[in-house]
Design a protein around this nucleic acid. Structure first.
Lengths: 209, 209, 209, 209
DNA sequence: AATGAATGAGAGTTCATTCAT
DNA sequence: AATGAATGAACTCTCATTCAT
């Protein structure tokens, strides 16, 4: 349990950041459904009333968390420059990023998943979270488009559908209930085979392992 | 709003069925998180105590709903005989089934999605819902295996990974937040291209539209 | 758990008796406060509605139990003739009876204790249970009166107060919470000493053990 | 009915004390079985949720009441110094205390009685209440031991049994259902006779009235 | 900026009782 | 005489929110 010590009299923004982080940790533990303002306050080390002073309502709090997730994803996206790479290289970089996030910040994916679930019934959350989803999908679509042009991918590839397939596969990977999971690498490899140009198969083999 | 009028003095099984259906409708409307026993009772037209007479607790109620979803999926699966078809035909039948479910019983998919979400934190629900997920995936894996043998699909296809990709794509299709959706057909077509043997592409074109 | 098998279509009186016995067993297990009509019905092997058919209300049910306890106590009292005994002998018989009841029908005492507790707030139960309490006390008072006359007990003994002391001691013996209990015999012996004539002490010694 | 008017914004300990007192009054009126959290809240003049804010559960509430009874008994016991008195004087002081409690704080005895009843099935309550019972009994046992030594009481007295008899008598005095009660004084006097040394009877006569 | 206390609305659950068959 | 189904009333407890300081 991460205890952010009281540190009384903080700036509002620091507090809001601490609240968002505590909320994210709690969402990971108990789900968005099991999120309780009292628990967040306790974890931050402040009073319930103080929490409401900084974040006026639970609705606002969820939005705050969504926003913090969005910013973290954007920061991660900006950290990696894709210029000067072939489409296939970019795709693999994208896969590497996903694997890295899965391994080092699984929290981010879990919270995003919960947020997307809620977004279906909460337009305010949808407004924040949809761009993340959309950006990720667009990213793949652009890679596929580029790849068709540079010959990395099949000429008859439908880049939008392929992006949908790719993001769907990765996103749903989380929701598998049976513990016997096929390793992500096999999935990545299969996606490359699926969309790659017939003659470029040697490159893929290297990547698989 | 479907109001099952009072219809007093039902037999227990009928009531349980009615309760499950009402619960499913409410889950579609407000999510599993927003499901309230009192609302279910009201929709079925019975007293809250009567609800508890037939379904002893909310936990049991959610399990009942999960079970009813499982049975509906199984019934649907049994309705369609796959014998004597090529792998590609079977894949297309599977796609047709999915589209049919999406169009005629979207409720079923929405509720299943919510159940899978809950299953991550509730082993009892996981026990009921995991088999559905697993069966669907296995179904695709078998089709792909068969297809590799009969030459419909690529010889280097990884059937398990391909199944994971297929089910993930379809399952996640629901979670897209942006209303501008690529039609399912394009996704289906792309999957066929992706896994199909290079020379069998002419068949797919027919299917797309 | 004593299961009185269904034995459908019983006479009303048999059923009422079975209900009373089942209720007594449950009172022993969970107290009068924890008594539930459903549990009684289950133990008797009948439906809740059937229980209400035979015993119209819970109030009547508690009265039924009280009455059944009263009858059992009366039957026990009638089984033992006290004629032709000295007062001291009668007192010892009374003690023996108590010990016997404690050992062989503790249920009866426990249920009576619970009933007396409730009687304080329920006049209907008080009307049934008070006579038991009163009869027991009177019994002792008469023994003491007789004993004063025949010289077994102190001449300055207050028979009514002595009876109160005796019954109070025995009745409260049950309510001791600390497990290290002084054996009943020592209490009996002390009562004899306390009320006995100064010179008759030798007889008591024999009785103690 | 004592209505503790709103008196908003109390400190936590005051509220807890008020809750305990209100609960005690209600236990006197309706018994521990009939105790309802809503009634307590109403009597204290607070919302039911406020009650739960100060006392987290009904279980804790009953424990709180038990504890408050225990503290009151202990305070009463500490108020009376017994040093420098003969055993007989101490016994009479004990009787005076009991009579005083009966007359001025009958509530305390009634609530204790209910608590002891519950303690039989609730170890948590037993842990709180048993010491009261035990302390009272030990008190008497010590007085009797002292009295045997200083000649106030019979040399063959069994102090433990005598204490059991004394406390049992007084405790059960409450449970008499017939309104025609022998005055407590006659019972006290009889106990003195019963345990006193044969020659010290003159002192008792004075005490009786 | 912070907090202990307070609250309304509502959640799931229980129980003696009654109805229809 | 018996029962499955139904019910109203009530219960303890929870939670986001607000008030007073």
């Amino acid at each position: 349990m991460t205890l952010h010590l009281p540190s009384k009299r903080c700036t509002g923004d620091d507090r809001r950041r601490a609240v968002a982080l505590a909320a994210r940790a709690l969402i990971v533990e108990r789900g968005l459904e099991g999120l309780r303002t009292r628990d967040i306050a306790a974890r931050v080390g402040i009073n319930i009333a103080t929490l409401h002073y900084h974040v006026p309502s639970k609705e606002a709090l969820v939005a705050l968390v969504a926003e913090s997730v969005r910013l973290d994803f954007r920061a991660q996206a900006e950290r990696r420059p894709r210029t000067g790479k072939t489409a296939l290289e970019q795709l693999r970089l994208e896969f590497d990023d996903f694997r890295e996030t899965v391994e080092e910040m699984p929290e981010l994916i879990i919270v995003l998943t919960e947020m997307i679930e809620r977004a279906r019934r909460d337009p305010a959350i949808a407004a924040i979270v949809a761009p993340i989803q959309e950006h990720w999908r667009t990213q793949f679509a652009e890679i596929f488009e580029l790849g068709i042009a540079d010959g990395s991918f099949r000429p008859n590839l439908d880049p939008v559908a392929a992006a949908l397939i790719t993001t769907g596969t990765l996103a749903d990977y989380w929701r598998l209930l049976t513990p016997l999971r096929t390793p992500l690498d096999r999935v990545f490899a299969e996606i490359e085979h699926a969309f790659g140009a017939p003659h470029s198969s040697q490159g893929k083999q290297n990547h698989v392992l």
